[in-house]
Structure formats: C-alpha cells, structure tokens
C-alpha cells in the first residue's frame, strides 16, 4: 500500500447552527482500494462527501487529496485534483439528453476557451461525442443517448450519473449510495463495474446502507456515528466491533438484523 493516501481527512469538524454534524473526524482512504463509509441515518456520511468535495467549508481541520492539501481549494477547482462524486439524489440535468449529461463529465478535460467553443453537435462525429457514446455503450445504454434524461427510468439515470463522474477521469471517486433503489441484477452489475474501476486505478469511497453489497465490494470500512469515527477495519472486523453493533442495534445483540441493516 502506498504511503500517500488517496484521501486524508485530518481532524475535521463542521456544525450547522448548534448541531455538530462532524466532530473531530480523521481517517484515510488507501490508494487503489474500495473503502466504505457506513453509519446509521444522520451519522454525517453525506456531509463528509460534501466537505471533501468542497460544497461546505470546514470549521476546522484539513483535507488532502493524493498528498495535496485542498482545504482552501474551492469546490469548482477540486476536480482538478482528481476528485469526482455522485449524488444520493441523482443530480442529472433533466433538460439535457443522456449523452449531453455525459459530455458535462468531460468538462475538466475539455480545456479553456477553445474547448468551450468547440463544435459538439455541428459535424456528424467528433472525439468528445464518440467517447461519450462509447462510455454509454460500455454500460449498455447506447439506446438512451438522445433521450431527455429526465424521462428515463431510475436505474438508467443512476448509471448515467456514474458514467458522467467516470468521464472526468478521477483518481478518487466518491459514490453516495450507488446501489440504492437498484434491483438484485442491477446491483450485481454495479459491483462488477466498480471492481473494473479499481482495476483501472480509481480509488473508491462508497456510502451505502446495503451491508451485503459492502461485504462483497469493500476491503476497508469506516464507521461513523454522530459525526465521529467509531470503528475502522475490514468488513469482518467492523461487523464484530462492539461500538458498531451498539450504534446500529442499541444494546440488543442481533447478528441477523445487523447483516441486513438497511
């Protein structure tokens, strides 16, 4: 494992009004691994993603991506450090087609004014559209390319959301509940797809409620409760951790219920 982690969160904190949402949180995401971020509802998982991607400023602490301190880098610049993310509530641009949404993912690679004024839709073919279409084909969505994305089924939108983030060619990809709302077949396809991403050298951080999914996919798990880390380790280690069982189940011990917690 490399000495420089893909993501290093160092003693960060965030409050909204009088509520401490994240409190003295530190953890690292090893390079090239698949890390899960889990915890009960309201534990602060999505807030961590929002802090890492710069949507909210930190109250204190620091965040580093691949060894570069990005604490004071604005949200629009962090993608340059190889960070991309997906959203729990899919955030596609409803008034654009599936293909155009994916073109948006390439924005960071398209360059300055020339990239901005490059004709995307004047000549029959160009490299950006070809690349986006190929990416749609890879996930079996070539038929939806020219449909308005707002009209598409949920599972399809979910995949488009993921492909769009991939086309930013990130080194670190934050996925907020990628399996939520998917049927078992789609979930298996997603698993295989995400494993493929790691093979291409992308580090993944996944927020997910489906423990089955995490057990299969992730080698590293960080557990949050009330904005603090209560456990960290392999899925096996975390599963048997006392504080984790307590956070999910109260004081009652029930292995069955925990392994299916959702």
């Amino acid at each position: 494992m490399s000495a420089v982690p893909a993501l290093k969160i160092d003693n960060i904190g965030k409050h909204f009004g009088g509520v401490k949402v994240i409190d003295q949180l530190s953890f690292s995401v090893p390079l090239g691994a698949r890390t899960a971020l889990i915890g009960p509802n309201g534990a602060g998982k999505t807030t961590v993603f929002n802090l890492v991607s710069g949507v909210y400023p930190l109250d204190y602490g620091s965040i580093a991506l691949n060894g570069a301190d990005v604490t004071h880098v604005s949200q629009g610049e962090r993608i340059k450090f190889g960070l991309a993310r997906s959203f729990q509530n899919i955030r596609l641009i409803a008034h654009l087609t599936a293909l155009e949404n994916i073109l948006l993912g390439q924005q960071i690679r398209a360059g300055g004014l020339r990239g901005l004024l490059y004709p995307l839709n004047v000549f029959r073919r160009n490299k950006w559209r070809d690349e986006a279409r190929a990416a749609l084909c890879d996930v079996g969505l070539e038929a939806y390319g020219d449909d308005m994305v707002g009209d598409l089924p949920y599972g399809v939108q979910k995949r488009i959301d993921l492909v769009r983030a991939e086309l930013a060619r990130p080194k670190l990809l934050l996925l907020d509940e990628p399996a939520a709302g998917l049927n078992p077949t789609e979930t298996e396809e997603l698993q295989a797809h995400l494993e493929g991403l790691t093979e291409r050298g992308i580090t993944l951080v996944v927020v997910e409620h489906d423990m089955q999914f995490i057990n299969v996919l992730c080698e590293h798990v960080v557990v949050l409760n009330f904005g603090s880390k209560i456990a960290e380790g392999t899925p096996e280690e975390v599963r048997n951790h006392g504080a984790v069982r307590e956070a999910y189940l109260g004081r009652e011990e029930d292995e069955e219920a925990f392994s299916h917690a959702s």
Binding site: Q75, G76, R78, K80, R91, I93, H95, L103, L120
Partner: peptide
C-alpha cells in the same frame, strides 16, 4: 451546439453540480 451552450443549461438547472464538474459558472 458547443460546451458553452451545454454549460449554460447545466448552470441554469444545477449551478452547484456544474461547478463541481469544473464549469466556471
């Protein structure tokens, strides 16, 4: 038919998202 137009639509719909993808909103 360029990224300029594409990005304007993205900004009008979801400024934060566009910005996260590197659009200079």
């Amino acid at each position: 038919r360029t990224r300029f137009g594409l990005n304007l639509t993205a900004i009008s719909q979801d400024e934060l998202l566009a910005n996260l993808f590197g659009v200079r909103t």
